[in-house]
Design a protein around this nucleic acid. Structure first.
Length: 673
DNA sequence: GAGCACTGC
């Protein structure tokens, strides 16, 4: 199990009695603010105890009277569970009694639960059932400075709920100094701006002293030409001239990391004899859990660990014993182009907030040093914070959720930072083409409301709800679960590519990747769950496939709640030709906007013809012939646009299932259809 | 002929 930010149980200070934590002396002022103002912004560093102590203070002060509950949201599942475990220990109760947590697939709460930790996305979902979140007296949004779409939307909802529930208390916790922005958001009232003059104060900011060690920041005198090379030489400089302590190097992606790890292990043989050795290791999300575990092991004697990591080590994973941080100054960020509907992943300069967070990884257990592989002038030119996710994402799933929450006029929703109009328009256009909203942008019933409830993206939700009429609901349920694993079905294996390919071909289906995924799942549930070696031998990701089983079961429960019954008896009948065609037709009913045609050179063109698409190397279509296809996903990286999870279709299916979409398109853009 | 940063329901 990864050692996590909030599970930092090896830091001695956290084993001090809670009364000795820095936050304890702020207890009275904190409770006074919460009593007095509807909104409290808490500024405190990791380790200040804010996530564990504040809910306990509130409970002791009576905020759980009348069976009310205190909700504390986290951006990540692991954080929600680990903080809950620690607070239950401190309170001295069994987990799930007075203190519990709730994340997707795991609800460890009961009628007696007074303090409940949950992911922010799940609390938004609770609002679908209880729009005013009436069971909660206090909602604390932790790590709000990370500005995930879910926490941004949650803050907007809470601001709205507050008008109907003046007694509700909102606590926003943030590790960096973005407190003023949060307070301003809750103080402004777009509906009644005139009340602002002399109106009562909505909230206040309280700063909790952190518990970190000093960190020396060092810059380059002149810019580095190649930051990977510079990172490697800096690692050797640290190793030969600095005191003991492990090194954490921030790079942008897998390729850079693998190159750096290899270079360090090659060059460390040139270290002087009898000197301490260097042990390089990679850390990125694509590794299996076992592979990630190594970074938490203590280095052998006379050995210094050097971990080359993506941004995963910036907030999600905390490694103890790091004394030196090397920061390349870049991060890969996802942006969504509303004109093309393509997501792009590009290396971008980090923000000042990110740089500070990275540097802070060095000072958790003793004083540290941070080597920034850029000049101080370059640092000054960085933006203060990253562009919030909500301004660079496909908003269709969130617009759908807001509408299901009764917010019809999404353009006027009170966003912390409003997304660009083009993103909103693109999302509404997609939802309209799928039939989720009508001519007046109102959610349709039952299609739109059901799509909003299903925990899959809108195009897959539409596919699922279309499946009964194609007689392939059981199969589409599986495909929906498998595609939502996001390309993690196969484990990354570099060694024997031919063997990997021939193994994968055992599951391959003529029709394409979707039915191949169906074959993988069906083999997994019949063989793989019992035989321990099945996944290993077939290069399959056991954890991901187990997750697919849970997702499928959850989606099935949703459908049954809608009164749609799932006939599983047909699933075992395999994929006879007619069934495979029905599946591909059904996929077209949801993914018609993701259609492309293969060219003689093996690349694809989108329907309007202007964009060159490449089959992702993980796709069967990477080396097969096809004509028209639909695909699950499209993304750009390294100047190439890839499509992933690709299946063959017939051109006329597009017109059959999306006549409106392609009539207008073909007239204005393209003659082919 | 060749590869996606990180989360979440």
């Amino acid at each position: 199990m990864a050692e996590l930010d909030l599970g930092a149980s090896f830091i001695p200070a956290l084993h001090k009695p809670a009364a000795l934590l820095p936050i304890a002396k702020h207890r009275e002022s904190l409770l006074y603010l919460v009593e007095t103002y509807p909104v409290t912004i808490v500024v405190g560093q990791t380790g200040s105890g804010k996530s564990t102590q504040i809910p306990q203070f509130l409970e002791q002060a009576g905020w759980c009277a009348d069976w009310k509950v205190i909700a504390v949201t986290q951006p990540r599942r692991v954080a929600a569970t680990t903080v809950a475990v620690r607070v239950a220990e401190e309170v001295g109760c069994e987990l799930g009694k007075e203190v519990g947590y709730s994340i997707r697939f795991e609800d460890v709460t009961s009628a007696t639960t007074r303090i409940k930790f949950l992911t922010d996305g799940l609390l938004i979902r609770e609002a679908l059932v209880d729009p005013l979140l009436t069971r909660y007296s206090v909602v604390m949004v932790d790590e709000a400075h990370e500005r995930s779409i879910s926490s941004d939307i949650l803050l907007g909802l809470l601001k709205k709920i507050r008008k109907r529930r003046p007694e509700l208390r909102i606590i926003v916790s943030s590790a960096t100094l973005q407190a003023e922005e949060f307070l301003r958001f809750f103080s402004e009232d777009a509906d009644e701006p005139t009340l602002q003059n002399g109106a009562e104060k909505v909230g206040s900011i309280i700063s909790l002293e952190g518990r970190t060690y000093p960190i020396d920041i060092l810059y380059l005198e002149s810019p580095a030409e190649d930051y990977v090379e510079k990172a490697i030489s800096t690692v050797f400089d640290i190793h030969t001239s600095e005191q003991t302590g492990d090194i954490l190097v921030f790079l942008t992606g897998r390729e850079e990391i693998e190159n750096a790890v290899q270079a360090v292990s090659e060059r460390s043989s040139q270290l002087p004899p009898h000197s301490k050795s260097l042990l390089p290791m990679p850390l990125f999300a694509g590794l299996t859990t076992e592979q990630q575990m190594y970074v938490f092991d203590e280095a052998p004697e006379n050995t210094r660990k050097v971990i080359f990591s993506t941004n995963i080590a910036e907030a999600s994973v905390t490694i103890n014993g790091i004394a030196y941080v090397v920061d390349c100054g870049f991060v890969k960020l996802r942006t969504y182009n509303p004109k093309t509907g393509i997501e792009t992943l590009t290396a971008t300069p980090v923000s000042k907030a990110s740089a500070a967070q990275r540097a802070g990884r060095a000072g958790r257990t003793k004083p540290g040093k941070c080597f920034r592989l850029y000049t101080e002038d370059a640092y000054r030119a960085l933006t203060d914070t990253n562009v919030p996710e909500i301004q660079r994402s496909n908003l269709a799933p969130f617009i759908l959720q807001l509408k299901a929450l009764g917010i019809d006029n999404v353009v006027r929703f009170d966003f912390l930072t409003p997304p660009p109009a083009e993103l909103m328009i693109k999302a509404l256009e997609l939802l309209y083409s799928l039939g989720a909203v009508d001519d007046y942008a109102k959610l349709t019933k039952p299609l739109g409301t059901r799509m909003a409830e299903l925990a899959v993206e809108p195009m897959m939700a539409k596919t699922l709800l279309s499946a009964p009429s194609f007689g392939c609901l059981s199969e589409i349920l599986t495909i929906a679960a498998m595609t939502s694993l996001g390309g993690n079905v196969w484990v990354q294996q570099d060694e024997d590519k031919k063997r990997v390919e021939s193994t994968r071909r055992k599951f391959a289906a003529e029709e394409g990747d979707h039915i191949t995924l169906l074959n993988v799942y069906q083999t997994f549930v019949t063989k793989g769950r019992k035989e321990g070696r099945f996944c290993h031998d077939n290069f399959l990701n056991f954890k991901a496939l187990t997750r697919a089983v849970s997702i499928r079961a959850q989606l099935k429960r949703y459908l049954e709640r809608f009164g749609i019954s799932v006939d599983e008896s047909l699933a075992s009948a395999g994929t006879q030709n007619n069934k495979a065609e029905q599946i591909c037709r059904c996929l077209t009913a949801g993914y018609f906007a993701h259609a492309a045609r293969m060219q003689p050179d093996g690349t694809f063109r989108n329907v309007s013809g202007g964009t060159v698409l490449h089959a992702h190397p993980s796709s069967l279509m990477f080396n097969r012939k096809a004509d028209w296809v639909i695909f699950h996903e499209v993304f750009e990286t390294g100047n190439k646009i890839y499509i992933r999870d690709v299946s063959k279709i017939e051109k006329n299916w597009l017109l059959e299932y999306a006549p409106e979409y392609y009539q207008t398109k073909s007239r204005s853009v393209h003659g082919e259809l």
